[in-house]
Every structure is written in C-alpha cells, then in structure tokens.
Measured scan of single mutants.
Amino acid sequence: QKTCLICGDEASGCHYGALTCGSCKVFFKRAAEGKQKYLCASRNDCTIDKFRRKNCPSCRLRKCYEAGMTLGARKL
C-alpha cells in the first residue's frame, strides 16, 4: 500500500508530480489554481495528517509544494 506524501492516507497515484491521495490531489488543484491566499493561524508548522488535513489549508498547500507538486506536472 502506497502512502500520500502530504497527509499519510492511502495514495491513489502520482498526481501533479507527487504520490498523493485523491483528497490532496483535488485540494492542490483547487488551491494552486485559485486566487485565494491562505494564512496559517499558528506558526506555519501545523501537523497535516489524514485526520487534520482540513484544519490548515496554508500548511497543507506548503507541504504540497515541498513534495514537488506543480500544476504543470503530468499525471504518471
């Protein structure tokens, strides 16, 4: 079983350049394409896991970029 690099849930494949679950794939697409700016209410070090991935979109998006996700990457 492969694990999502963002939240640790079961990965569905390589999306936008990183091994992710469906939830993180859709989140990244919407967040990266959108005009909304996300700000962390804490210290930009929130725990992003399967159960808390929706708590801080700022840290989740940062983790996506750190994992190498880009909109230009093709699905592998």
Rank of each mutant, 00 (worst) to 15 (best):
G13I: 03
R30W: 08
T20E: 01
Y65N: 10
F27L: 01
R74G: 14
C46D: 03
L5W: 08
K35T: 14
T3M: 10
A73H: 15
K37A: 14
S23D: 10
C21Q: 02
Y38I: 15
R30M: 12
N44H: 05
Y16R: 02
G22T: 10
Y38E: 10
K35C: 13
Y38C: 04
T20R: 01
A31K: 02
Y38D: 11
R74K: 05
Y38A: 11
D49T: 07
D45A: 09
D9S: 10
N55G: 10
R74C: 15
C7G: 01
G22I: 05
P57L: 10
V26A: 08
T20G: 03
A31S: 12
A31I: 03
A18Q: 05
T3K: 05
K35Q: 13
L5E: 10
Q36T: 06
Q1Y: 15
K63N: 08
C7E: 00
I48P: 05
C24E: 00
L39G: 13
D45Y: 06
D45F: 03
D45M: 06
E33S: 12
A32I: 13
S23L: 04
C40T: 02
C4V: 02
E33F: 04
G22M: 07
G17S: 04
K37T: 13
Y38F: 09
H15M: 09
D45V: 08
R30F: 14
G72M: 07
F27N: 01
Y38P: 13
C14P: 11
D9N: 13
S12P: 09
C46E: 03
R52S: 09
C4L: 01
L71N: 08
L39M: 14
A32L: 07
A18D: 05
G72P: 09
K29Q: 07
C21K: 00
S58G: 15
C40A: 01
Y65H: 09
K29F: 14
K37L: 08
K25E: 14
C56N: 00
P57F: 12
G8Y: 14
C24F: 00
D45E: 12
K35P: 15
S23R: 05
F27T: 00
Q1K: 15
R30V: 10
F27Q: 01
R74H: 12
C24K: 00
Y65I: 09
N44Y: 04
C46K: 02
T20N: 03
Q1M: 13
A41H: 04
K29S: 05
Q1F: 15
F27A: 02
A31L: 05
C56V: 00
G72V: 10
K25C: 13
C40K: 02
C64V: 01
A73I: 09
A32Q: 14
S23G: 11
K25P: 04
A41C: 06
K29W: 14
D49L: 03
V26R: 14
S23I: 01
C24N: 00
A32C: 12
T47C: 09
H15G: 07
R30C: 11
L19D: 11
A18V: 11
D9F: 02
C40E: 02
L5K: 11
V26L: 13
R30D: 10
A18L: 07
G8S: 07
F27H: 01
S12K: 11
K50Y: 08
A41T: 11
C24V: 00
T3W: 08
N44W: 04
T47M: 09
A32H: 05
A31M: 06
A41F: 08
G13Y: 04
L5S: 13
S12D: 12
D9M: 03
H15C: 12
A41E: 09
G22Y: 06
C56K: 01
I48T: 09
C64Y: 04
L71F: 15
D9K: 03
A41Y: 14
N44T: 07
K50P: 13
C21S: 00
R30P: 03
L19T: 12
T20Q: 01
N55E: 03
C14Q: 08
L71Y: 11
R74V: 10
R52L: 11
K35F: 08
L71I: 12
L39H: 12
H15N: 07
C24S: 00
R30Y: 06
G13K: 05
K37P: 13
C24M: 00
C56Q: 00
K50R: 10
K63C: 07
K50E: 08
K63S: 05
L5C: 10
C7T: 01
G17W: 02
C4S: 00
T3H: 05
T3N: 14
V26D: 14
L71E: 08
D45Q: 15
C7S: 02
H15P: 05
A31W: 07
C56R: 00
Y16M: 08
K50N: 15
Y65A: 07
